[in-house]
Design a binder for these strands. Structure first.
Lengths: 106, 106
DNA sequence: TGATGATATGTCATAAATGACATAGGATGG
DNA sequence: CCATCCTATGTCATTTATGACATATCATCA
């Protein structure tokens, strides 16, 4: 469950989150959507490191840039789910892998 | 597994897919990414209908428009994963629900 | 110390996605 | 037949995401 400090942390990162009350209510779609992205974000970083690949290399594999990969991994709000998923697929993730990460969010 | 006719169908819908050989090879990331979107797309339509909600109503719930919901459900290539996922969350899908749909893709 | 490699942050022009609107197509009842 | 309701398709101005670049921060090691 998300607490107030998490909301602050997210806003510091640049996320535009709704009111605190709404935010603290039983997970709005918005909050859950953000949590989903962050979960994929973390997983991406772990997977990339596990494979001993640099951001630069991953960027090249998917025709992106190092800076964008960095943003993906730091949970920058300008990064889309699309890009996160494509990154994971590029790293060899299976549909089941993705599903596992997503199912673990809450 | 995707066959040639599927590639044609996708291109008719407006998807820009790579070469046939690449496409028919063991699922490129691109193809898998597209299949993922289509799976969510279909699930969205099913869920919305199951709940007896019109595209117009769903659109209002998520501050979108009927035409965009239609595009989501018909697999229009201009629709993002983000929007598909947010739609499903709006319809009350749980993370496990999403995971299930994704895990079933192949 | 500083040099080197990796990651983070800021900015920007371009590309892509979005909501909105108009309108077409389709089904169902009257 | 034709209203009425719903869905699909096309288009477009605006918003948002993207790759690219510069530069900053950080860690490791000689």
């Amino acid at each position: 469950m998300m607490e107030k400090t998490k909301k602050n942390m997210l806003e510091k990162k640049g996320w535009k989150v709704g009111t605190t009350t709404e935010f603290l209510g039983l997970s709005s779609e918005e909050a859950r959507y953000i949590e989903l992205k962050l979960a994929l974000s973390e997983h991406l970083k772990k997977q990339r490191m596990k494979q001993k690949i640099t951001q630069e290399q991953l960027a090249k594999m998917m025709s992106s840039s190092q800076s964008r990969v960095a943003k993906m991994e730091t949970g920058d709000p300008t990064v889309s789910l699309d890009l996160l998923v494509r990154s994971l697929l590029t790293l060899g993730a299976s549909e089941k892998d993705l599903a596992k990460v997503i199912a673990a969010v809450n």
